[in-house]
Design a protein around this nucleic acid. Structure first.
Lengths: 149, 149
DNA sequence: CGAACTATTTATAAGTT
DNA sequence: TAACTTATAAATAGTTC
């Protein structure tokens, strides 16, 4: 619709793409408003431009949440359950990472070392010696600075 | 667009309303596809006609869940129910705990010690010395055991 | 009836300022 | 650059089959 016909393919020129995006976004939202008034339809439109900025439209008297509830009820795709599952999995994952860190930390502090074999103890000893050296170096550095002041 | 201009107000004739709904719904979804291709936008459209039947469009490579996640991130509105909110909060909490553990672990290994003050360094030194002592004791214990065998 | 048709309106691509 | 203009493409209201 315009001075020239365009192919429906990505507009490579960034500026033109931005202009077209803004115009067409307004167009879609206008159409969404119209169909909701003309036909009493419930409509939700969410658009993210390539810049990441969001625009939304939702027909009057219905929040996006309402529309999505309706979506959930109707289509049986279990939108929320899927989301829930993802979150639960993430929690499990992080908790495991956490436990692992706790254990490492405990070993460094000398806790539960009886569960380690000789080789592991040697590695641990090296790490601790190295840490101790760094800490002592830093103490020395700080002492020098405070003497200068 | 059409043989005659129409007011944007509810179409009272059920049949005409249904026809217009169907035509315009297709129109909106076509436009949504076009903007996603032309501009690389992410778009989600959910429409319920007055009959209650649902239609949706979601731009390729992004599920409705993804788009809603993005929505959630951007606008901070409470799209998810309390359960999900709790899960999200838990994730944040555990992640923070995790970061804290990572930092402690780093310090024990001698990383980023320059961010510590003298008092903190002394505490750290004590912890490390204690840990080292435990580890060495354990090494000795293991040696004794292996000699006995 | 729903699919196809067209006269018109509307949206918009490109141009202009 | 963004807002305005205009020629043209696209959408669609009413109609036909």
């Amino acid at each position: 619709m315009g001075r020239g016909k365009i192919e429906i393919r990505r507009i490579e020129n960034t500026n033109n793409r931005q202009i077209t995006y803004s115009k067409r976004r307004n167009g879609i939202i206008k159409k969404a408003k119209e169909i909701s008034v003309l036909c009493g339809a419930h409509v939700a439109v969410v658009i993210f431009g390539s810049s990441g900025k969001m625009h939304e439209y939702c027909s009057p008297k219905a929040s996006l949440v309402d529309i999505l509830d309706q979506y959930h009820t109707q289509c049986g795709k279990r939108l929320w359950d899927a989301k829930h599952e993802n979150l639960s999995n993430e929690i499990d994952r992080i908790k495991k990472a956490n436990d692992n860190l706790q254990m490492q930390l405990g070993h460094l502090k000398g806790e539960d070392v009886t569960s380690l074999n000789y080789k592991e103890l040697m590695v641990l000893e090296d790490v601790l010696e190295n840490g101790l050296a760094c800490v002592r170096d830093q103490k020395v550095s700080l002492s020098k600075v405070s003497k200068k002041l």
